[in-house]
Design a binder for these strands. Structure first.
Length: 140
DNA sequence: GCCAACGTTGGC
DNA sequence: GCCAACGTTGGC
């Protein structure tokens, strides 16, 4: 029995900039470019082994799969000031049935999640309960 | 392409 | 330290 992840997250990416397929092609990707303080705090709270939903924003508008945090708390290589953080991730599994934002909004139990409440937050925390519900939705 | 939400900047 | 102006994000 493997240890359950300590935390669950949701990370947004615009697929025309960096998509799930790009991550799969790279095998391991650096999650950088975050320039929002709440998102940064979430990045800093991530631990190796945590799992995160990979969400396509602007286009797609759906959770396409799950990634695992492989390296925590590194400096954002795209940031010259040294103020911003990043993590490394690798793909864990692709959803057979991506979970759309529309479907998430249609679920009253998910109305309070950070994805819905804070639509502009690019790195959101997901509670274990929300994680469970969304994983079940992905099974179709 | 538009606009709402929100963060940041800069004048006072 | 307040707040208006501006820029960015992201859903629609």
């Amino acid at each position: 029995m493997t240890k359950a992840p300590a935390n669950y997250w949701l990370m947004k990416s615009e697929p025309f900039k960096y998509s799930w397929d790009d991550l799969v092609a790279e095998k391991e990707g650096v999650w950088d470019g975050v320039r929002n303080h709440l998102a940064k705090n979430n990045l800093l709270a991530m631990k190796v082994g945590d799992e995160a939903f990979f969400y396509h924003s602007r286009e797609g508008l759906e959770i396409v799969g799950i990634v695992t945090i492989t390296v925590e708390g590194i400096l954002d290589p795209t940031d010259e000031t040294g103020k911003w953080a990043a993590v490394k991730i690798k793909p864990k599994r692709r959803f057979d049935h991506p979970v759309t934002l529309k479907a998430i909004k249609a679920r009253p139990e998910l109305a309070e999640c950070e994805l819905v409440r804070l639509s502009r937050l690019s790195v959101a925390r997901i509670t274990p309960e929300e994680w469970e519900i969304i994983c079940r939705m992905a099974e179709g």
